[in-house]
């Protein structure tokens, strides 16, 4: 790649923060780039109409409703046996058939969406809290604190997260809790980066400067003025991560490191049901389709919020 004089400066910065080992160069990260992890769109032209968010919100609203009232909607419990017997084909009595134990697949998916959603949310929240705290401290204090904290973050960022997660779970033994801990361990650095970047950028803005001059304490400054500004990109990243996490859970279940049975976790259901793919395809395919829908909804929402935020900033 050659450098042209025409190249806008943002591009250089765009390339900086995600460089892997010892990305000391990343100390002055502008906001949009941190969203790049796994193909997060950065700023884009406000080409879309303002109501896109609402379009994307509809599936998410439906989803939330499902999650909320899943136990009511589900004709059977997650571990309850449907009287039609094990491995029954889809029928009016069992909409998505039954699994090898005779449990109702439709009910398990409804409840599974809840489990998977909460599992993903748990990892993401934990990641946000740990990462946000570290990022906020680093961003607000700057200097040596920033350097040390970001070096540690870089260390974690430089390691292949999925491989590490596998090793961690293999060491601790598979259980939903251990899986979530392992995923959180490898997930937080991205949030630390984003929050720190946003905080740094916002700290340089006039309103923060003004607050500083007015004698506002540093903690108050961070809490009141800087962190809220970092919230938007964090939310975008969070929504996009839901799909990634559910897929990660599915992959881990496939190699025997996922949520233990009989937890109705979508990834685990699909992975464990894979052996029935040819004789009783509904067992693995129905939960996989639910995973895909969930990921799709989360992705669309994330993209939409992102574009919406974009419009706000470009205006």
């Amino acid at each position: 790649m050659t450098t042209t004089t025409e190249q806008p400066p943002t591009m250089t910065e765009g390339a900086v923060p995600v460089e892997g080992p010892g990305a000391a160069a990343a100390r002055e990260v502008p906001t949009p780039v941190a969203r790049m992890w796994r193909g997060r769109p950065a700023l884009s032209p406000g080409a879309l109409k303002g109501d896109t968010v609402w379009h994307a919100l509809i599936p998410v609203a439906i989803l939330s409703l499902v999650i909320l009232i899943a136990p009511v909607l589900a004709p059977y419990g997650a571990t309850e046996v449907n009287p039609v017997g094990p491995l029954a084909s889809p029928s009016p009595d069992a909409w998505f058939g039954t699994d090898e134990i005779g449990r109702d697949v439709f009910s398990r998916i409804l409840i599974g969406i809840r489990t998977s959603w909460f599992a993903a949310l748990g990892v993401i929240l934990l990641g946000t809290i740990i990462g946000g705290l570290i990022g906020a401290i680093a961003g607000a204090f700057g200097g040596k604190v920033d350097m040390v904290l970001m070096r540690v973050t870089d260390l974690f960022l430089s390691l292949p997260a999925p491989v590490l997660a596998i090793a961690v779970i293999a060491a601790m033994g598979p259980s939903l809790r251990n899986t979530l801990i392992a995923l959180s361990i490898v997930w937080w650095p991205w949030y630390a980066r984003i929050v720190r970047g946003e905080v740094r950028a916002l700290a340089a803005r006039p309103h923060a400067e003004a607050a500083k001059l007015a004698g506002v304490s540093r903690t108050r400054l961070v809490l009141k003025h800087l962190l809220p500004g970092a919230a938007a990109p964090v939310i975008v990243t969070m929504s996009l991560d839901v799909g990634n996490l559910i897929l990660a859970l599915a992959g881990l279940s496939f190699i025997g490191l996922g949520a233990p049975p009989p937890a109705p976790e979508l990834g685990a259901m699909s992975a464990r049901g894979l052996q029935y793919l040819f004789g009783h395809p509904w067992v693995p395919i129905a939960p996989a389709a639910a995973v895909a829908l969930l990921a799709l909804a989360a992705n669309l929402l994330g993209d939409a919020i992102n574009r919406r935020l974009d419009q706000r900033t470009t205006r």
């Binding site: 571990t79 046996v81 090898e100 134990i101 025997g256 049975p261 009989p262 464990r272 052996q275």
Partner: peptide
């Protein structure tokens, strides 16, 4: 114990019930 056909898991889940 883990086995490829998943039969012990199935028995485990039945026994659990």
């Amino acid at each position: 114990s883990a086995d490829e056909s998943g039969v012990q898991r199935r028995v485990g889940e039945l026994l659990q019930a």
